[in-house]
């Protein structure tokens, strides 16, 4: 069969709901998109640890400290599970774990915008757990129906562990929301700082050619905007119920258009943060990651050679 026929058959299969395994034949385009998506997901899990681990020594009590450490452990674990999937996909190109991690410190793979931002206060740490994790969960839940079976299976596991993250984040936010005026002010300030980063997290409104291809191959089944709308529907009422003000006076549900109207984030500003690693904390965290990459080389060596 020529490659065009194979590609057509493949697309027909995935579009009718078939799942693809690592050992199945797949078009190069499909493989490239999966590598790009899952590699970014994996390193985002790893970089997502930094804003939270910064709060481990400063957590307000022992239980919060333990919970944060458990989250850090979970997220590093998710990074490992996801990298394993990328390794299988990237094997034909001779790319392994070392190269995939080098890409991160060399700026060749991007990570989510939110992990370039600063966790300035305990409310920021809580908000990360509540809304950033909330947004990530919506994104991951939508990928459970992906056509690539190994990714779907791992996402199932990741989502199950995220359910503790969700409850933990809400619990931190609820206690701050029930606190003093000063604490509530800190929470409001945190929402102001994170709001547009959260909207950006779901990606641009337009369906880019790469996104279109992912939909075509059923790697994704939902658009960025569909997911952003779902996030708004689930979380805006809860944010309001806490008596917080969302820093967008135009935000409302448009019942005629059946969608949430919102002021768009400054796309270029946020895009620059991600594509050039120019966020407030990008360089500092990548530098820490580089130190880990260098100084822990002997650990990886011991773990991979068994000596």
């Amino acid at each position: 069969m020529d490659s065009q026929r194979l590609e057509e058959e493949f697309v027909k299969r995935v579009q009718s709901g078939a799942k693809i395994e690592a050992s199945d034949w797949m078009p190069d385009g499909y493989r490239h998109l999966l590598i790009k998506l899952i590699h970014m997901h994996a390193v985002s899990e790893i970089m997502g640890v930094y804003p939270e681990k910064e709060w481990v020594p400063k957590a307000p009590n022992l239980r919060r400290k333990l919970a944060l450490m458990a989250k850090v452990q979970d997220e590093m674990g998710h990074g490992q599970l996801l990298l394993r999937i990328v390794e299988d996909l990237a094997a034909p190109y001779g790319k392994g774990r070392e190269e995939l991690l080098d890409d991160l410190v060399e700026g060749k793979v991007k990570f989510h915008n939110v992990f370039h931002m600063e966790a300035r206060t305990w409310a920021d740490a809580g908000l990360i757990g509540w809304l950033i994790d909330g947004a990530a969960i919506i994104n991951q839940a939508s990928l459970l129906s992906t056509s690539y079976a190994p990714y779907a299976r791992i996402l199932k596991r990741i989502c199950a562990e995220e359910s503790f993250h969700m409850q933990h984040g809400e619990n931190v936010i609820l206690s701050i929301a029930m606190g003093t005026d000063e604490q509530r002010k800190m929470l409001q300030d945190s929402l102001d700082y994170w709001w547009y980063s959260l909207l950006f997290f779901f990606g641009p409104l337009e369906i880019t050619p790469a996104a279109q291809k992912m939909l075509h191959y059923r790697i994704r089944t939902k658009t960025n905007e569909e997911l952003r709308q779902k996030f708004l529907a689930k979380y805006v009422p809860r944010i309001w119920s806490l008596g917080l003000t969302i820093p967008d006076p135009t935000l409302h549900y448009d019942s005629k258009l059946e969608r949430w109207h919102y002021a768009e984030p400054e796309w270029e500003v946020f895009q620059k943060i991600v594509s050039e690693n120019k966020g407030p904390k990008s360089q500092e965290r990548i530098a820490l990651r580089r130190i880990a990459q260098d100084q822990h080389k002997w650990v990886r060596l011991a773990m991979t050679t068994g000596i």
Partner: peptide, 28 residues
């Protein structure tokens, strides 16, 4: 502290804000 069962008070706390708790299953 690392289990959902460690945060059962969330439901009660949300009700104080006239909201209800949210679960992962519900989101999925």
């Amino acid at each position: 502290y690392r289990e959902v069962s460690g945060y059962t008070e969330n439901g009660r706390l949300w009700r104080m804000f006239k909201e209800k708790e949210i679960t992962l299953e519900e989101i999925v």
